[in-house]
């Protein structure tokens, strides 16, 4: 999970792990730490499995990449290690197909910042991206993400996030990545 400090990359990793947990899976989420400052590139990792996870290394060969900020695509190494058949979800107004062709991988785009501004009035793209990912993969029910988000927010912010999740889920093709992910 690639993002910039202040975009909620670490929170997104924890939320995705919590989603897996709500769906009855084992999970592990952790950030890669550097100097914690707004705008600096941040990487966070999530592992999910149906059996207990012992490994504690950073993920070098991910199945899926989430890119929260399209300016990070300027670094060509961003897809380094992505498994063949792996996929990338990018928060951008640009065309995912073109990005995918450039990096040689499947890529879906969603303008999660725009969605966040609409619903939250703040440019925090993380819940929208997670809703898109969960929908594309079809591995976890969207209700698991909703439960995970409910564990973190309440009141108006929760309602806004739930509406954002519904919109983001509707913006991508349900189960489009299901096949690739089934053997991941």
């Amino acid at each position: 999970m690639h993002g910039r400090g202040g975009q909620g990359s670490v929170a997104a990793a924890y939320l995705l792990a919590a989603t897996a947990f709500e769906a009855g899976w084992q999970c592990q989420a952790f950030p890669s730490f550097g100097a914690e400052r707004r705008g600096a590139p941040v990487t966070a990792f999530v592992r999910v499995d149906q059996t207990q996870i012992h490994l504690r290394s950073q993920i070098r060969t991910p199945d899926v990449l989430i890119v929260q900020d399209d300016t990070l695509l300027q670094d060509e190494r961003i897809t380094a290690g992505l498994k063949s058949g792996g996929a990338m979800l990018v928060n951008t107004a640009r065309d995912g197909g073109e990005i995918g062709a450039h990096f040689g991988c499947r890529c879906v785009n969603i303008d999660a910042t725009e969605l966040a501004i609409t619903h939250l009035r703040r440019p925090i793209p993380n819940t929208g991206l997670l809703a898109a990912l969960v929908t594309l993969e079809g591995r976890f029910a969207l209700t698991a993400l909703e439960k995970a988000v409910s564990g973190r927010f309440n009141g108006t912010i929760l309602e806004q996030n739930l509406a954002l999740i519904a919109d983001a889920a509707a913006a991508v093709s349900a189960g489009a990545w299901a096949e690739e992910m089934s053997d991941a």
């Binding site: 792990a17 084992q26 999970c27 592990q28 989420a29 996870i53």
Partner: peptide, 10 residues
């Protein structure tokens, strides 16, 4: 530190 303290798991 970090490897455990900052890792979310069940």
């Amino acid at each position: 530190g970090f490897i455990l303290t900052h890792t979310m798991e069940p």
